[in-house]
Design a protein around this nucleic acid. Structure first.
Length: 568
RNA sequence: UGGGGAAUAGUGUAACGGCAGCACGAGUGACUCUGGAUCACUUAGUCUAGGUUCAAAUCCUAGUUCCCCAGCCA
């Protein structure tokens, strides 16, 4: 009776799969694969593909999704990346069970298929070097011309290819090419290279091979071997589909269907592995897992949850239009998730000392605070209160502007879960004029935060007890790039010019409530009224707590203040 | 100038010849011991020009704009 099935998010790829299921194509099977190249870390764009491929498999009875490393280029690929990719896919919550494959597992089969194409007169060894091949290829508007080696005999090709394989030819001296059509309007069909000579050790096959198949000669056949039904990839491979189909047809093997969708772009960041590598290599960030990076490990260290990333991937949809998603949507998905599950805690980032003049010296007490108003099941905790406290510098103004509800001379506010306090004096540094300490009085009747006489205060502030608070470092992050579209640059400049110089602020004298002692790495909290924070997985220890700001809370006051200022 | 794709509110994304809907953003208000959360309301769209049709985002024709392709990268 429910409409859940019909309102379930759909897209043109899911429609194709559903139609295939309806008509009984693929014997009713659904089998996808996620095929990363282990030449870098996974990013949020890969998460879109992971959610798509694993998601579609999960949605169908008996559906499967393989993890397959597309490791055909030993020059760029490393074991470190293989390990990191597996960790990230797992962390996102997907399970490939025992279906962990490598294109390099198929090198023997691929080589045999190459021989088969030679024997069928559909492939030849070409002695042209890279520059010559480019020359012979022609241009977008002009047809190419045939390689002088195009009509070698099958026997000669067989011998030459064997010599390539045996290591008798230097790198780049020859290639194995498919014999298709040098005048084809699609450049990918102008006798594409199937095998190149690369005397390089491969992370998995070591020195077994000195010839390596190209992507085009590998991918479709890998899909075929794994009996993939829907081979989902990004738009730039659309031009390769005719070749994908050509190889599978020429080989007369199981033929998966390639479907292309638009890759993910996000505002205020870059998504290409090459550019991310540049940021890492040139030290603009601390590493692939820098919390400002759009990598999965960076997002994890920043405090993102897999659930938030997955719900984001669901709501952005899948289409063929090249779009750029507003990063606010990612942040929305995050806040939505964290709001439900992050325990609340009080932390003062920029401390301002407050002395409660009429609170007895030496007295302290414990007050009840709720851990998560969204989830009463998370219970309550005790927070210590005493005569000397810290509040946020921002929560006091000597000269409060319009609509500023917080503390000011003579004003009364509530300390969350504690008491109403009234400011009686602001002590200033004589030389700088800066407010360094507040003197307040409290109303003992308001213990716990309620006023028996029903009087109201406009603001509730977070605070910590000076004597009980823990020292902490907090890193505030902003967008990595200052421009919404960092890749849009003037001639002669590049995306690095758009880096945001203020993407990281480190605050070293923060005070957090004592319940945070021993908080484990990656644990997430809401610092009340400020945002979501998580314990840094690299820099934090019991001796020195370090928190990363995951995302701030929506800040209505900041918005008001901003319009007030711009209105002047 | 060859080939392959794509255009729907600010940003994304639905509609499959039959009332252009949803989300985010933005704005307004309510509520609140987080200026949080939540709730309500508002805002704003079919690339252009023709045509077919009772009816077009959808079909046809012509055009415009954007993306991809000239790696022995993937």
């Amino acid at each position: 009776m429910s409409t859940n099935d019909s309102t379930r998010s759909s897209d043109f790829i899911r429609d194709i799969v559903a139609e295939d299921q309806r008509t009984g194509n693929w014997d009713g099977r659904v089998h996808t694969r996620f095929p990363p190249e282990p030449n870098g870390y996974l990013h949020i764009g890969h998460a879109k593909s992971i959610c798509l491929n694993f998601g579609i498999a999960e949605e169908h009875e008996g559906g499967l999704c393989n993890l397959r490393f597309d490791d055909t280029n030993p020059l760029k690929e490393e074991q470190e990346y293989i390990d990191a990719i597996k960790e990230d896919v797992r962390w996102l919550g997907f399970d490939w069970e025992d279906r962990e494959y490598f294109a390099s597992d198929y090198f023997d089969q691929l080589c045999a298929w190459a021989v088969q194409l030679i024997q069928a007169g559909k492939a030849y060894v070409c002695d042209l070097d890279a520059d010559q091949i480019r020359e012979y290829r022609g241009t977008l508007t002009k047809p190419g011309k045939d390689s002088p080696d195009r009509n070698r005999s099958v026997e000669e090709n067989l011998v030459l290819f064997e010599r390539m394989r045996a290591g008798e030819c230097p790198d780049g001296s020859r290639t194995l090419r498919a014999k298709i059509d040098m005048a084809h309007p699609n450049l990918n069909m102008r006798d594409p290279v199937m095998y190149r000579i690369l005397h390089a050790a491969h992370p998995r096959t070591g020195n077994k091979w000195c010839i390596y198949p190209t992507y085009d000669f590998t991918h479709g056949q890998s899909d075929s071997i794994e009996r993939i039904t829907h081979s989902i990839c990004t738009l730039e491979f659309e031009n390769h589909r005719p070749l994908y189909d050509w190889y599978l047809d020429a080989l007369e093997v199981y033929h998966s269907r390639q479907i292309e969708f638009a890759r993910l772009n996000l505002t205020y960041t870059v998504m290409s592995k090459r550019k991310l590598l540049t940021l890492v290599r040139e030290g603009y960030v601390s590493g692939w897992d820098d919390p400002r990076m759009p990598t999965i490990c960076g997002l994890r260290r920043r405090g993102y949850t897999p659930e938030a990333i997955r719900s984001f991937c669901e709501r952005i949809g899948v289409a063929k239009f090249n779009s750029t998603i507003d990063i606010a949507l990612l942040e929305h998905s995050l806040r939505e998730d964290l709001n439900q599950r992050a325990p609340r805690v009080m932390a003062v980032l920029r401390p301002l000392k407050v002395v409660i003049d009429n609170y007895p010296k030496g007295q302290e007490e414990e007050l009840d605070a709720v851990n998560n108003p969204e989830d009463p099941g998370m219970g309550t905790r005790k927070v210590p209160f005493s005569r000397v406290l810290y509040i946020e510098q921002d929560d006091f103004r000597e000269d409060p502007p319009k609509k500023y509800y917080r503390l000011a001379p003579g004003r009364e506010v509530r300390l969350r879960y504690a008491y109403f306090i009234k400011c009686v004096e602001a002590v200033k540094d004589e030389t700088t004029g800066e407010v360094v300490e507040l003197h307040c009085t409290y109303d003992p009747e308001t213990r716990g935060g309620g006023a028996p006489d029903g009087r109201k205060v406009k603001a509730t502030l977070h605070w910590v007890s000076a004597a009980h608070a823990l020292q902490a470092e907090v890193r505030l992050y902003d967008h990595l790039f200052a421009k919404e579209y960092p890749e849009a640059v003037d001639e002669g400049s590049d995306f690095r010019a758009n880096l945001n110089p203020n993407s990281l602020h480190t605050l070293t004298s923060c005070r957090v409530e004592p319940s945070l002692a021993g908080a484990p790495a990656e644990s997430r909290y809401q610092f009340e009224r400020q945002g979501y924070f998580c314990v840094d997985s690299a820099g934090s220890s019991d001796a020195k707590l370090v928190f990363n700001r995951t995302v701030s809370l929506r800040d209505t006051w900041a918005k008001i203040e901003k319009t007030q200022n711009s209105g002047q």
